[in-house]
Design a protein around this nucleic acid. Structure first.
Lengths: 183, 183, 183, 183
DNA sequence: CATGAATGAGAATTCATTCAT
DNA sequence: TATGAATGAATTCTCATTCAT
């Protein structure tokens, strides 16, 4: 029953799937309506029966294929009664897996390869240099032995992301967090 | 002397400045050659005397207006003989300032407003929820009192950036870094 | 049945017809895609649904509106059992008619008016002067009376065409053909 | 004396030489003013001191580097007192050499490679087929033994050129010329 | 005389979108 | 529901030409 409606729903999902794939591969601007239609095995005209414009399709992909719902679910699950550290690890691992499993969607956020390459260069360089500095100070006995690689990546990433999203972090508080002053 | 050459050099810089502005505002794909020319107060044709293509202009902006050189300089400055924590703070503040001062360039990395909005939503939500979790556990006495807001942002940003750049972080090591097991 | 396909085929033919007309009038380089579209009463974009590029359109016109197939047919028809001279006349007249009927296509071979004018001047002058020479010698009794105008045109055209196509003719053999030495 | 004028004259010739070369290589429409200037080792602006427009340059090349003057000279030289056949051969050989020595200029008449290729195909095919026909008839004893290859090329070229230049030839007269009826 | 920066018009081509079938 | 022919606007880029230096 509802064959008509089922078929329409199925087609809609198929179009969204194809669109996510194509947007990830070519970028939102780089993907033409023809590309999108071909990837879904339909004609351009048909897209307009399901989405009023290419822009609407983009927004729908971001909304319906986005991982915010899953993220919220993940973060709000009840975990009372279990040790905090264990919960934290589990939670962050899940989040990481969520990102990994949505690589295509993440790709849509960056304007093609250019951005990803630039970002990788930026963070790579920064982390390497901060890591070297930390190693020095550990060797000199000023800082206690610890995982300097992870520390460098943590410091760098935190400053960068929070600046990029427009809410800069309190740097002294960040340093205090990782390297608490003896009291 | 060299008025001709000076003028050409000046024009080149002016075109790059305008391009950075326009790319940041509209995204690389969203900015047409006409937009770029208008922002510089010249005709589209002139752009092609200075850059062989729009693509070449993009690359030049990224290269010549990029902050990698300044970043390297910043991170490699000699800071021996001063306390590690102080150096770290200074270093990260400088890096943060560098990013802040190059907001336009950062914007170029993201495909227009859409990406920035999505990223902000993603991180905001995640950090808020992790922060709430940490607060709970501090209230319950399981974790020592600390700056949970900063901690949440740190954890979240670190996992996200390192996944986005293709080199995922070791989550247990990250948690151990912020919340070392008593020994 | 097949109204859609028929219509598309008709449109394709129409575009080729219009293109042949415009190319003949303005030359291949002189005809813009806008000109071609206007001549066919469509928008430039439509041309690209039928031909991948202007260049492809040129090639298609040359191939599908070319007279090589008809020429081959003409020259290979069975004519055994009829006098050679009669066959030759018939054959050349047919060929001439073929060229006449495809004046537009011939025009495409020459880069616009300039070339045709130059060619006409060149041949006109040459034939006139050779004709005068032949008349002289006929008047002097050195050559037998004959159609000197035709002879002049023949000699001139033969040398010119064969040079232009890159396979120069054997001039003494040519002269011997028209004016055999007494034996 | 007149160093100024001499220099100007020299430059003018140099520009014409370069233009002939470039026009022949790329076609009149395919050669940009930049190409022309570069080939002459000057800047585009300078061309306009010597020729009011690109069009004027084209016309000047055709006029001043054309071979009409030399052709006229060649054809009107006094050759009285020498046998007609010998004169004809000499004359046509000179004409042929003139064309060969001005291959570049000839190239200017044709809109790039396309035209030359088409023309070569057309004549090649036609001459081959007519040649075969003549051979048959010679073998059958209907026509006297003669140079059928040259005859085929002659017949074909004559009809084609005269049609192309707009003054079609009298075909029966042409055939009578090569194959006179016994009387 | 010579340069080359700058322009304005126009070239080929692409593309989101509409609509008759 | 689905097609695909057709459009009109925009895009990147080229080019003949001008003119201040």
């Amino acid at each position: 029953m509802g064959t008509r409606k089922e078929q329409a729903e199925w087609r809609r999902e198929q179009l969204l799937d194809a669109a996510l794939r194509v947007f990830a591969a070519k970028g939102v601007d780089g993907a033409s309506v023809k590309d999108l239609a071909e990837a879904a095995g339909v004609t351009p005209g048909l897209l307009y029966r399901y989405f009023v414009s290419k822009e609407a399709l983009v927004e729908t992909v971001l909304r319906e294929r986005g991982f915010m719902p899953r993220l919220r679910e993940l973060l709000t699950a009840d975990r009372s009664g279990r040790p905090a550290r264990q919960v934290l690890v589990e939670l962050l691992v899940s989040f990481d897996a969520l990102l990994a499993g949505n690589a295509e969607l993440m790709a849509v956020f960056f304007s093609a390869a250019r951005a990803r390459a630039a970002l990788a260069e930026l963070t790579g360089e920064g982390q390497r240099l901060i890591g070297a500095f930390l190693d020095d100070r550990v060797a000199a006995g000023e800082l206690p032995p610890h995982d300097t690689g992870t520390a460098a990546r943590t410091l760098f990433a935190t400053v960068a992301v929070n600046r990029a999203t427009g809410s800069p972090i309190d740097v002294p508080a960040l340093v205090e967090l990782l390297y608490p002053e003896e009291r």
